[in-house]
Design a protein around this nucleic acid. Sequence first.
RNA 1: GGCCAGUUGGUGAAGCGGUUAACACAUAUGCCUUUCACGCAUACAUUCACGGGUUCAAAUCCCGUACUGGUCACCA
Length: 547
Amino acid sequence: MTYEQLAEIIFPNIKHDIKYYEEKYPLRETKEGAIVTRYAPSPTGFVHIGALLASFTGYLFAKQSNGIFYLRIEDTDTKRTVENGVNKIIKDLKDFNITFNEGMINETEEQGIYGPYIQSKRKEIYQTFIKFLVATGKAYPCFLSEEELNDIRNRQEKHKERIGCYGKYAKYRDLDPEQAAQKIKNGEKYIIRLKSPGSFYKKIKCKDLVRGELEFPENDLDIPIMKKDGLPTYHFAHLVDDHLMRTTHVIRADEWVSSLPIHLQLFQVFGFKAPKYAHISPLLKNDNNQVRKLSKRKDPECAVSYYHEMGIPNEAVKLYLATIINSNFEEWYLQNKDKSIEDFEFSFKKVSKSGALFDLDKLGNISKTYFSRLSKDEIYDQTAKYLKEFDLEFFTIFTKDPDYSKAILNIEREQKKPRKDIAKYSDIKKLFYFMYDDLFVCNWENKNININLLEDYIQNCYSEDDDKDTWYNKISGFALEHGYPSVKEYKTNPENYKGHVGNVCEMLRYVITTLTQSPDLYEIMHILGKERIKGRLEEYKKIVSNI
RNA sequence: GGCCAGUUGGUGAAGCGGUUAACACAUAUGCCUUUCACGCAUACAUUCACGGGUUCAAAUCCCGUACUGGUCACCA
């Protein structure tokens, strides 16, 4: 019996050949240098921040080279597939404005001519390629049971040998096709393994776009390419898909480097040109002096949805990821206030080879800078959207009078150097709660405040029509009259005075806001209005006299 | 254990044979005609994991050691 006949017995229903698919999926007519790449997740519905980093990197490189970025769903592991998983992934990425030129657009639909873009619908294609391998004696059915495989592994561990199916352990590698056919007819379960042409003692060199030259021993493992259920393994699906979808670059997490020899060998067996590879280092976390990969189970910040819930703008997260991808991005961003991330020219060479500790402080800082560049209207809209989803009570209060809220958001904003104290949408409530009567709580303590002085000031000196300079001149004059001179004067002769203007402002601030720190007092008073200020002084008097 | 990679301050990092070892975050202090924030200024690595070598000269090149990470499934 020939290998062809064996292939026919294993795959009786496969009628097409490789050539058919080669023609069906023509080479892309992209320009020289255009990067065709993909994001290829399993539909678990969960987007890991590391996966976001990898996909964002792919998106950026495809975009800046006028290439193609497509979404392929890798659902060959039927056990892991989750209901609505594809939609969840697409939504999470869409939130970050990471969009695709081709690929799945929801659970069942897709766009593009290189599909299907979901692996469970490509079984026939994979089997065509596997059939070819069997027919040419380059792959074979393997009848090793799970127990046998375990035994082999134990033996290898015991004798400190390399683990895997190779050499004498590849029991069915050279089985006569006749006997193989007989076993299949008897209903024995099998998988298909590659008959690896490699030798562990020979080296292969390959180039990784971020790591440079790498050298490995050749792969000599007869790796599984088709599982018992007839679906291909990841390695084999990668070969077929990335070849047929005419992928030029594979940008993926660093955990894949070690399978590079396998992948390269697969391309070599078919005589296909392998794509270029770029392996992205993982995001790390320092957990009790133990550095480790960000973990789905232990770290909430691992899920991309975490940032959404926390109220950190997606754009800020992207900004942070961009500085991880190319650390020189940050400096550029600081200098180019009007440009967007996509205007920056990213380079593979600048991608760090080692994993970075994920730094929430830094993210916070970047987010503050991002907020400081937004207009009051932009912040208002985005915040309202966030509150509607996560804080309905404040949403109602916040949106009751949009102009009022916008005025608050505008405090110290439209100036050369805007305030930088908002990192999250949820900060706004904490920062400005005292501006909303519905939220304001009169929880003053007795702080030795001269309330009569303040009442005198509001009653007889303060006018809501004053501009900032006038306001300051007036309050300074008033303070001086009552024994509170300028800070300078007070510092030179402290024994002559009760305090300085600053102290008057502090008392005023405390009574108005219950806080010792706040944004600009003048603006706060201006927005609040004289009547409400008076009301708060009254309240203070009532409450503190009872303490 | 085998294979692969990485190691520059508290953090992200620049540097690629001759530099005062950039820059950003964090921290500390001071200055900014009211606090905070912003901004500005200053401080913070006598040294680039360690040991050896090459060289007039090494964070930069070579070798070894250590540590860290990844990987070794009919998972991706």
